[in-house]
């Protein structure tokens, strides 16, 4: 068996003539967290529904853990857990019942499933609501219930279509921790609009737009596409010759009295650059850093932003103020 949990080859999908997927080829290694990043309508959900056997591709092939999704549906279904983008529960059953019937569908014996259900409900913080009808849950609680349901039968591959949309920060962090712990034993494929989620969680990120994968790699790989990060230095002295002499690997420009120093990785270079400047006696009145975010990558690749609003999180801010030196 190959090292890949999922291998898709030139997958296309049309909806009444509209081409939602235009030949998607992906290799997802076993045990990684794989992120699909893309704007609304990019084709993320469509791709997941083909991987999960919910829809048939018009052409191309998908092999999941050695099984063909079209010819060996049941084998594929048995080893996957899916959290859909839209709700997919029975609100007239309790949380426990939703999970219990799910476990039975996947052939789990009752004594085993009962224990496991309590565990996963605990994990998503719904233990005390387990016997309430899901209809009485808030949107975020329903989401958590569905995440728990996808975990009950201990799937080898976990698909999460925008799993944390609508979750409060605490639950998101909690879920991320859990997913990180699954890394290695479970292959996780998730879609998201959130940069921080993709960055913190995903080993590999594929950017999808208009039904095609336009870039792929870990977040550092992707950021390199944009061509480095920028350290901004405010100074009345000319720092360009200073940096030239120091042979530091960077390029410098001056805009409106602010020097823009372009480096591969701002976090790693900033201390060194400041030391060089200070040693040369340069007077610095302010420093700022523009770290490349996946948002920048996306803007660079597609010319549009991923999402109008991002959740407030310091990681997603493009400018990180490191404070004033001097």
């Amino acid at each position: 068996m190959s090292d890949f949990a999922i291998v898709s080859d030139a997958v296309t999908k049309r909806y009444n003539g509209f081409e939602a997927l235009k030949g998607v080829s992906l290799r997802i290694p076993r045990g990684v967290v794989f992120g699909l990043l893309g704007p609304n309508g990019a084709g993320k959900t469509t791709l997941l529904s083909i991987f999960t056997t919910l829809k048939r591709a018009n052409s191309g092939s998908v092999i999941v853990e050695g099984f063909d999704v079209q010819k060996e549906k049941y084998s594929v279904r048995k080893l996957q857990g899916v959290v859909f983008q839209d709700s997919s529960h029975d609100g007239e059953l309790t949380a426990f019942e939703n999970l219990f019937f799910h476990a039975k569908l996947y052939g789990m014996p009752s004594d085993k499933s009962r224990k496991k259900i309590l565990d996963v409900l605990e994990l998503v913080g719904l233990s005390d609501r387990k016997d309430d009808f899901v209809n009485t849950f808030s949107g975020g609680m329903r989401r958590r219930m569905e995440i728990a349901r996808a975990l009950v039968h201990e799937p080898k591959i976990l698909y999460l279509d925008e799993p944390t949309t609508g979750l409060d920060p605490q639950t998101r962090n909690h879920l991320w921790e859990y997913l990180k712990n699954l890394r290695g034993t479970t292959t996780i494929v998730l879609t998201t609009h959130y940069m921080d989620e993709a960055e913190k969680l995903c080993d590999i990120i594929a950017v999808i737009d208009h039904g095609s994968i336009i870039a792929q790699g870990n977040s550092d790989d992707l950021k390199r596409i944009v061509g480095g990060e920028v350290i901004l230095v405010r100074s009345s002295d000319n720092i360009i010759p200073v940096l030239k002499r120091s042979k530091f690997k960077c390029s410098v420009d001056k805009h409106n009295g602010i020097f823009e120093i372009r480096v591969d990785n701002a976090e790693k270079s900033i201390a060194k650059i400041l030391r060089v400047l200070e040693r040369a006696g340069v007077k610095i009145s302010g420093v700022d850093v523009h770290r490349t975010t996946l948002e920048d990558v996306f803007l660079h690749l597609t010319g549009k932003s991923l999402r109008e609003e991002s959740p407030v999180d310091f990681e997603t801010k493009s400018y990180t103020n490191l404070g004033r030196v001097n």
Partner: peptide, 8 residues
């Protein structure tokens, strides 16, 4: 959807 992708 839950029924449709169940392994039955």
């Amino acid at each position: 959807k839950e029924t449709l992708i169940a392994p039955i």
